[in-house]
């Protein structure tokens, strides 16, 4: 039976989809069978980050409605064959995703995969609530920035009250991923410190992902950052996070961008 993970944040644009793709790919490369699911309705993102945008035939709403069976909607990744994607619908309205329908699809996904990673949309409305409802584990993505931290806190409150686990009186395992971390701004004191964020949110830290142009580059190319350039700092941080999720003890470190000789030569990276 699978572990269901939700990647959520409250605030938009902090790195949920990037994290979903990176963690999914890292886990799949380690031999696990993984399905990443896009829970947005109306705005489809995960397929673009995964590079599968040209192959989308059926989406989550098609499966919920019975227009298609789950295997027909799943898109296998061309690079790692234990990695699959269930895309979101681009065109239909949010009421098309019924509670019962989603529950049924989640059950089916649990039977087929080791890991089901749900990419939550931003906000606290239906899409976000549906994405978190069936999760066993939550990964809360936060930037070291005030509104992101407060929105993450709100989301943590919802994780503790509006999920199946909460309804059963069980505590959901929650982890923090701090993204867009800039070591130089931190040194200058221009950025919320990691300890401050942890103190306010009070959930354990899974990883610190440094700000990096590699993330943008990977999304340009349609490839999860852990597959595109496994040696870059964010990829290594995500790989460590995946290992921690599997239960391994990995000491926390802040991977620093290794400047290559040619990088220094050209100074400015052309994205």
């Amino acid at each position: 039976m699978a572990k269901v993970l939700v990647v959520t944040s409250g605030k938009g644009g902090v790195g949920k989809t990037t994290t979903t793709a990176a963690l999914g790919a890292a886990l799949a490369q380690g031999g696990q069978s993984v399905c990443v699911v896009d829970f947005d309705v109306g705005l489809r993102n995960l397929d673009l980050i995964m590079g599968a945008e040209r192959r989308v035939v059926y989406d989550l709403i098609n499966v919920v409605n019975g227009d298609a069976k789950l295997p027909q909607a799943l898109i296998k990744d061309k690079r790692v064959d234990t990695l699959h994607l269930l895309p979101a619908s681009q065109t239909r309205d949010k009421d098309a995703l019924t509670d019962a329908g989603v529950a049924r699809v989640m059950e089916e996904l649990r039977e087929k995969f080791d890991w089901v990673i749900c990419d939550s949309p931003a906000g606290i409305e239906r899409g976000a609530q549906l994405a978190m409802h069936h999760a066993d584990i939550a990964v809360v993505v936060t930037n070291p920035e005030v509104s992101s931290v407060r929105d993450s806190d709100r989301i943590i409150g919802l994780l503790d009250s509006k999920t199946a686990k909460a309804e059963k009186g069980e505590e959901m395992e929650k982890h923090l991923i701090l993204t867009r971390y800039d070591p130089s701004r931190a040194d200058r004191g221009d950025m919320l410190k990691t300890e401050d964020v942890l103190d306010i949110l009070s959930i354990p830290l899974l990883a610190i992902i440094p700000e990096s142009q590699e993330v943008l580059r990977a999304s340009n190319l349609g490839c999860p950052v852990t597959l595109n350039n496994p040696l870059c700092a964010p990829a290594r941080a995500y790989a460590d996070a995946a290992r921690r999720l599997k239960g391994e003890e990995v000491p926390m470190s802040l991977p620093v961008e290794r400047k290559s000789f040619l990088d220094k030569l050209f100074m400015r990276r052309a994205a």
């Binding site: 580059r217 999304s219 340009n220 190319l221 349609g222 990276r269 052309a270 994205a271």
Partner: peptide, 9 residues
């Protein structure tokens, strides 16, 4: 690759 990721996008 680096030069072209923007044009690929």
């Amino acid at each position: 690759q680096k030069r072209n990721s923007g044009s690929v996008a």
